[in-house]
Amino acid sequence: MTEPTLWLTGETCGLGPYRADLVETYWQWEQDPTLMIGYGRQVPESLEARTEGMRHQLQGSNIRFTVYDLGGPGPVPVGVTTLLPDDAVRTAEFVVMLAREARGRGLGTEATRLTLDYAFHVACLRMVWLKVLAPNAAGITAYERAGFRHAGKLREAGYWLGEVCDEVVMDVLARDFTGPSAVRALLGRTGP
């Protein structure tokens, strides 16, 4: 693997481009049963299907990042964040996926904050939203730490461990995104 390009970095992780050469790594993360439960997906996917999907993803208009753990001797890929924009209204749905070994260390929260920083300061979005299965307490807490607020719920819209459950809808507005900005730091600015 070549040395990754990092576009935005925080204290513990960085964001770089979505990479075709990592398709098998992404696929392995996606086949983790704990991730499948978190997404409410019941069916595994073949590597061949994932490789074909990657070709379409690389040509699409969605904004995708590889998340790198910066805690070791070099950047190690540990996840993906995605913004699915609706250009007509300047909003986007947010999706994050972390490898099992990367969870519980704050990387998801920091990767989410870096992605929101990009969304509001580079992509000029006005709001980012997400859906999370209601029983996923760890995910909800991480999203709250990153700045998301509860916006409502979709009743009985998902499955968790084979049981019907609600999906929680959360959002964050550009004006609510406070704290350090890696984008502003790149420009040498701390304020508006």
Rank of each mutant, 00 (worst) to 15 (best):
G71N: 12
S181Y: 09
D69R: 07
R189G: 00
E11F: 09
V96F: 00
M54H: 02
T190L: 06
V172Y: 03
P77S: 06
V95H: 01
E3Q: 13
E163Y: 13
T115R: 07
A157V: 09
A123M: 04
Q28Y: 00
T141P: 03
P77L: 07
I63Y: 01
T9G: 08
V76E: 09
G38V: 06
A146W: 10
D166S: 08
V122S: 04
P85N: 00
T141I: 04
G191V: 06
P73K: 15
G71C: 12
E48V: 02
E11V: 14
L125Q: 04
P192T: 08
V80K: 00
G162A: 13
R126L: 07
V80L: 06
W7R: 10
P73Y: 04
R155S: 09
G71Y: 02
G16W: 07
G53V: 05
W129T: 11
R175I: 08
H56P: 00
R149V: 10
E30S: 10
E30F: 05
R184Y: 12
V67P: 06
D176P: 06
L83H: 03
R105A: 15
V95N: 04
G188D: 07
V96L: 02
G188H: 03
L6I: 15
A102I: 03
M97W: 02
M36E: 01
R113C: 11
G104E: 08
L130D: 02
A119W: 02
Y143Q: 09
P192G: 11
P75M: 08
V122F: 03
A111C: 11
R113K: 15
L70H: 03
P75F: 05
V67Y: 05
L116H: 08
A88N: 06
R184P: 03
C124D: 13
P73S: 15
L22A: 00
W7Q: 02
L15V: 10
P192K: 13
G60R: 01
P4E: 05
P77I: 00
W129I: 01
Q57I: 00
E163W: 13
Y68F: 15
P4R: 07
